[in-house]
Amino acid sequence: MSVLIVGLLLGGTYALIAMGLQLQYGVARVMNLAYGEVIVAGAFATFWFFAAAQASPFLSIIGVVPVAFAVNWAVYRVLILPLVRRAKSQGQLDVDSILATFGLSFIFIGILLTVFGGEMLTYSYLARPFVILGEPYALNRIAAFLGSAILCACLYGWLHWTRAGLSLRAVAVNPGAAALVSINVERASAMAFALGGAVSAAGGSLLSMFLTFDASVGVIFTLKALVIVILGGVSDIRGAIVASFVLGLTETFVATFIDPGLTLAAAYMLFIIILLVRPEGLFGRRSS
């Protein structure tokens, strides 16, 4: 029972990260291998705020989000857009953006190493037990879950009930047709990419409340986010949320009953199952 709740709490926090990647891959159509490094950067910044000013992680999110948005927007404009413009097909854009963001991930790691050093960073925030159904849980995990739930709800609402959100969804469905109804596809894509990065940095802030980070763990988060998005189906937010819970639960089960060092193996196990059974994802539509 406690495993179930811990897994659900973790999954809820992953949901935010998955939504960010979905914006980048589903709307902007950029395969971003430097995604996890943005999460780590968010976590490091939060740690830094906490160590320097005892600032609550929730306060630091307010600072982290605009910075991450600006950085990711600049990355899209400067690095990705030339690739989008020169690509003749989605396949070629994938190859180019994979190479570019792979290089970018090492630049991010290099910057993080230079600024923060190579140690494991962790801090203690809300490390109090909180009793649910007679069993204690770490309050910071619950706080992270609630923070993620609120942000996810805001994002979902923005995407579904505003004009700007509608244009992003239109680009996700069909960039060519979106351009015909006078949506500025390049602007919408830049917006989606930057928003995705901002969301992932916020996710990093939340995760840092109960996970330990060092500069090199980004790739693990990139992979987890990708597995969630593939499992859920690339352009379906409901799928991503369900898949986040699936990954959170699987990971918690593996960590509890086998070994805490094998969380990536859990993600890979899910990945292989999807590839063999349902490559289009839980909610994805089978392509011809």
Binding site: G103, F106, T114
Partner: peptide, 13 residues
């Protein structure tokens, strides 16, 4: 790490 990343991007672009 940083310089490796930068040289990688230079090559790609």
């Amino acid at each position: 790490t940083l310089l490796l990343g930068v040289s990688f991007l230079l090559i790609v672009y």
